[in-house]
């Protein structure tokens, strides 16, 4: 019977069957498989992952992989959580129903967090997008990790106006209120700055910033800001 239930359409019956006969390891693997293949409904994927995790915890077998499998499930659940935390108006903005979302890929989540659809985006959203980078599949050919990273930071810059304020006596001080530098601060606290922050020339060459990069005031503020970051990092060393 176990063999027959292994077919794709009957996987659902399979985990029910495994639990009934007390084979929690078997149920764990069947559920993990179902979760992996679930791309239509986010909430369904979440429950499959949760059940799979519980089945692993219930397992009495001597399968050494279970602890690792739970780690993988937690990573997946973290991704689900990031999608659930998207503001509902942002989700609606791209034509999805917040209560009935399909499963988004990490790069799609990143895009939504820093897109125009996320109208109230702030440094926390940019930080979430950066956190999501570790979920991105680096072996995916259609995807360039550094381009994606550059895109996030470029979007952070575009969330503020960089116009010169003639009444501002200390323009560099105004950097503190910019989403970009607030994000730098958050990333710094997590200790990921060296890995995540692109070099200034790379950032300035971002195609999305082509217009802005021509403005002397913007260049001045960015150079000043990067200088401050550098000296802070040196002080710590």
């Amino acid at each position: 019977l176990s063999k027959f239930l292994d077919g794709d359409n009957v996987k659902y019956l399979s985990w029910l069957h495994e639990i009934k006969r007390g084979n929690y390891t078997g149920a764990h693997y069947a559920l993990a498989d179902l979760a992996k293949n679930e791309t239509n409904f986010l909430s369904k994927k979440k429950t499959l992952l949760s059940l799979s995790k519980l089945a692993a915890l219930a397992s009495e077998g001597s399968d050494d992989n279970l602890a690792d499998n739970i780690e993988v499930i937690n990573e997946e659940l973290d991704l689900v959580l990031h999608q659930e935390l998207l503001p509902s108006h942002t989700v609606e903005g791209v034509g999805m129903d917040p209560d009935n979302m399909r499963v988004l890929k990490p790069q799609e989540l990143i895009e939504l967090y820093v897109s125009d659809a996320n109208t109230d985006a702030n440094e926390l959203d940019v930080k979430k997008a950066l956190d999501l980078l570790r979920h991105v599949d680096r072996d995916d050919d259609g995807l360039d990790f550094d381009t994606l990273k550059l895109h996030i930071w470029s979007r952070a810059i575009l969330m503020d106006s960089w116009e010169e304020d003639p009444n501002d006596t200390d323009p560099l001080n105004s950097n503190r209120d910019k989403v970009f530098f607030k994000t730098v601060n958050l990333v710094y606290i997590d200790g990921d700055l060296e890995f995540l922050l692109p070099d200034l020339p790379v950032l300035m060459a971002s195609p999305e910033l082509a217009e802005l990069s021509k403005q002397p005031h913007f260049k001045f503020l960015m150079r000043g800001g990067y200088e401050q970051i550098r000296s802070t990092l040196e002080q710590v060393d």
């Binding site: 949760s50 059940l51 995790k53 519980l54 089945a55 915890l57 219930a58 937690n74 659940l77 973290d78």
Partner: peptide, 23 residues
């Protein structure tokens, strides 16, 4: 979903037998 969540870590209060029962 609630029991397995890392936000609340309720599962940590379960022994094997009670997880089995719940499942």
């Amino acid at each position: 979903d609630v029991v397995a969540s890392e936000l609340h870590r309720l599962y940590q209060n379960f022994d094997k037998e009670s997880v089995q029962h719940l499942l």
